[in-house]
Structure formats: C-alpha cells, structure tokens
C-alpha cells in the first residue's frame, strides 16, 4: 500500500507491523524473522551488560539501527520510577528517544499498572521522549495517555504472550473512536487472523513478539503476520459490507428460465 504510512510522534513507518526481538532461538533467527515481517520498527529490552562473558554478541550487530527504528521498552518495571530510570538509560545509549513504556502491575497477568503508567508518561513526555505506552484495553486510560502527550496508545489484545487474540473488541473499538493518536494493538496476538481483526477494526498497527517468535516456524509466521496486517488494513480501507441476518442473492433474480 504505497503512501499509507503509519506516523508515530513524527516518525513515518512503511509497515504497520511492529515486532519484538525476544524469545528467538538466536540472533540469526531474530534477524531473519524481522526481515520476513517487513517491520521497520522493532522493540528491544534494556538490561545489564554481561560483564563476565565479554565476547558476547550484541543484538544490534544483527538488527542494524540504521535500517530499523529501535524502540526500547521498560519491560520488567513495576513502578513509575523504575520505568523512568530505564527509559533514561535507554536514551543515554544514544540511538533513540523513543520508548515503549511499560509499568507492570502484576507478575501473573503482566497487566499494566495504569496509574503508574500515566505518571511515568507525564514525566517522560516532559523530558522530550516519544512515548508509546503499553496499556490496558481501557478507553478512559487511553484518553488520559493521549492527554499527557503520548505519541500513540497501545492497548493489549490479551495478556502478553497468551496468544488469546482480542479479548475485548468493543473496548478496542471505543479506544479507536476516543483518541486521535494512533492505536496500536500490543500483546496477546496468537495468529494471523488476530492481527487482521485488529486492523479491520481500524487500528493503526499491531505490535507482537511471542506470536511470531513462539511459532513452530517463526520466519513463516512473521511473513503471515505481514500479510495479515496488510489484508486487515486493506479491508478496513475498502469498507466492509454490513452484517445481515438473512441471505441476499449474489446472482440476478430476473431472467430465470421458466
């Protein structure tokens, strides 16, 4: 789809699929899956450098920051303070001022702590970060995040890594109608149709990691997701037919032989 860009915080993306880099077998598989997905924005995590194993390869040797927009996350942070600290460190690494902001509320569900999320977003926006918040499928919270200056909102489809697909399509639809910033469905996508549904509903993009990395063949699934996002986007723009209870013949009713 030429010219149909996704713009987040002034950054133009050709692909509406954003992918993670976690859980792959190795860096080579990560590189190949990302290439197959067609994504031009990829998420990474911020972690301590391994100071014992000095010759460890770096992810960014495989994912070239000149080719891909690197989106560092604050995964694993349970307070606004931790998330802000992590975001600042990510920025200090010197390749981006983007942050996928996560403030996690609970280890079992990994649902966001939305109060902490809004608090952290407020601070980071003021500091000049482009904030992409991972949030709940709550339209009110989405509005608050937009109000504090987030570049988009990223409601979950279902719990991270669950593969359950969109659990509350009505809320996602309300979020889409409530905010003006892009809506990216993030987390819980299990297979291609889940991504297509998100796009058919008018969401602006989909972010996923486990759905691809955890598949039997991650490279093939990455490609499937690319087409699913395209198909869903095209269908949304094409405008679907209304749903009806009864049949409506496709062939003419006139001119039947008698």
């Amino acid at each position: 789809m030429k010219g149909d860009f996704l713009t987040i915080g002034g950054i133009q993306l050709k692909s509406r699929l954003i992918v993670g880099t976690g859980k792959y077998k190795d860096f080579e598989q990560t590189r190949r899956a990302i290439e197959a997905s067609g994504a031009d924005m990829v998420t990474v995590a911020v972690r301590r450098v391994n100071i014992i194993d000095r010759n460890k390869e770096n992810l960014l040797d495989y994912i070239d920051p000149k080719k891909y927009k690197i989106l560092p996350n604050t995964a694993g942070c349970y307070t606004a303070d931790e998330a802000v600290r992590t975001a600042r460190l990510a920025q200090a690494a010197g390749i981006t001022n983007l942050v996928k902001l996560e403030v996690i509320g609970d280890q079992k569900t990994l649902f966001p702590d939305t109060a902490g999320l809004i608090e952290a977003a407020k601070i980071l926006v003021k500091e000049g970060f482009i904030v992409l918040p991972y949030t709940n499928d709550d339209p009110i919270v989405a509005k608050r995040l937009e109000d504090v200056g987030c570049a988009c909102v990223m409601p979950l489809a279902a719990p991270i890594g669950s593969g359950l697909g969109i659990r509350n399509p009505y809320n996602i639809q309300i979020i889409r109608e409530t905010v003006k910033v892009p809506v990216i469905v993030d987390a819980g996508v299990g297979t291609a149709s889940d991504a297509a549904i998100a796009m058919e509903m008018g969401c602006d993009g989909v972010l996923m990691n486990t759905g691809i990395a955890g598949a039997q063949d991650p490279i093939a699934m990455a490609e499937a997701m690319k087409y699913a996002v395209w198909a869903g986007r095209l269908a949304y723009k094409a405008g679907r037919i209304p749903k009806k209870l009864y049949a409506n013949a496709s062939s003419p009713v006139e001119g039947m032989i008698e």
């Binding site: 993670g20 976690g22 972690r47 690197i70 560092p72 996350n73 600042r88 990510a90």
Partner: peptide, 28 residues
C-alpha cells in the same frame, strides 16, 4: 546519575562507586 558519553574519559571512579552498565537485548 547517568553519565554522558562525552564524560567517560573525564569521569574518575572512586571507592564505593556503584555503576549500572546497560545495553539492548531481545525483548517485546
């Protein structure tokens, strides 16, 4: 306190200093 890259050569470490050195790893 985050240390600016430009300050790496000028920042002398003292006994008891605590450092966090981070980089990017695979994540979602």
């Amino acid at each position: 306190q985050i240390i600016d890259k430009k300050e790496y050569t000028r920042t002398v470490l003292k006994d008891g200093d605590r450092l966090e050195i981070i980089s990017f790893v695979g994540g979602g």
